[in-house]
Structures are given as C-alpha cells and as structure tokens.
C-alpha cells in the first residue's frame, strides 16, 4: 500500500508544501513526494533550505486547500 501523502512547513516563514498539491509553478507537479524534491531546493518565499522544513499532521481550515492550490 502506498504511504499517505504528507505536508511540510517551512520553519523560516510558515510556507507549507503539500505533496498532493505540489508546486506546479516551481516545476513540482501534484503528487511530488517530499523525498523527490531536490536537496538544494529552498522555500520560494524566504529561501530557507529544505532541511529546515518540518512534517506536520494538520488539516486545512475551511476553504484552505483551495487557497493553497493557488498560493
């Protein structure tokens, strides 16, 4: 069985990376696993390195997932 999709939070600014959504504008299609995000990738908002993201088990607020898709 496939491992569930995860969400990651930038500890420099709070930007969230959601495997389900990816970041299509930054070349990461929906479904891109965190392990497949390049090691030299940095937070698009604040430049914090990938190693300083934390996995979070958190749901979206009402309507939040739609906002995250266009973030």
């Amino acid at each position: 069985m496939e491992t569930p999709l995860t969400r990651w939070l930038c500890l420099g600014c709070g930007f969230s990376y959601d495997e389900a959504l990816g970041l299509p504008e930054h070349g990461l299609p929906p479904g891109t696993r965190w392990t497949d995000v390049p090691d030299d990738w940095v937070c698009p908002d604040c430049g914090t390195p990938k190693s300083q993201f934390e996995m979070v088990e958190m749901g979206y607020a009402d309507g939040g997932a739609d906002l995250a898709r266009i973030a």
Partner: peptide, 9 residues
C-alpha cells in the same frame, strides 16, 4: 506557534 490548522483566515 504552530497553528491548529493550515490556511486559517
């Protein structure tokens, strides 16, 4: 602080 949910208003 970590929030309780992502993308709150």
């Amino acid at each position: 602080l970590m929030p309780g949910q992502l993308y709150l208003p």
